[in-house]
């Protein structure tokens, strides 16, 4: 079962990593991604908003796909919401497996999917009191798409991926 947390508080990467190996001897490696708040253009803070309920569902689904696709012994996804200062962690993805390839690939898969399929929104706050919403990046969609084109992906994954990717703009019908 993946460990999924959405929280305001900072997370402890060492404690979370230790929890994935505690009491077991079959883990050969833990892949990790730590997303950190960067102070671009005089940024003072990031404020993260999410869709309670849907966020947990979306991440659980993505984590289930990772566990089905790679032989993981465990995985942890912690995403912070609320106000986050430069230098602080925003998101933590940990994947444990017997071998490094599975751990590293699953970790990259999870963060790529999180960036484009989990309902979080970042607002940047600046020194002068101004703020702006972060715009979605095409590169992130491309990073996620590479997992959909992976021939090792199960058919059901492709279907899920495509249907959510197509969840595009509610444009008016012709």
């Amino acid at each position: 079962m993946p460990r999924i947390l959405i929280q305001d508080a900072p997370f402890d990467i060492a404690a979370e990593t230790a929890a994935l190996t505690a009491g077991r001897t079959d883990v050969g490696g833990v892949g990790s991604f730590l997303g950190v708040c960067r102070a671009d253009d005089g940024l003072e803070a990031l404020v993260l908003e999410h869709y309670p309920g849907m966020t947990e569902r979306a991440i659980a689904r993505i984590a289930e796909q990772a566990e089905a696709r790679w032989p993981l012994t465990g995985c942890t996804v912690i995403h912070r919401v609320g106000r986050i200062l430069p230098g602080e962690g925003i998101v933590l993805v940990l994947t444990a497996s017997a071998h490094r390839a599975a751990a590293l690939e699953a970790c990259a898969f999870l963060i790529d999917w999180l960036k484009t399929r989990a309902p979080f929104w970042k607002r940047e706050e600046f020194a002068a009191g101004s703020h702006r919403w972060v715009a979605a990046r095409a590169e992130d969609d491309e990073a996620t798409a590479r997992w959909e084109h992976d021939p090792t992906a199960r058919a059901s994954h492709d279907t899920t991926a495509r249907s959510s990717h197509d969840a595009a703009a509610p444009r008016a019908k012709a």
Partner: peptide, 13 residues
């Protein structure tokens, strides 16, 4: 520019 979800799943127009 707007995305939608119906019953907490992404939804097309």
């Amino acid at each position: 520019q707007v995305r939608a979800a119906v019953n907490q799943d992404f939804a097309a127009p």
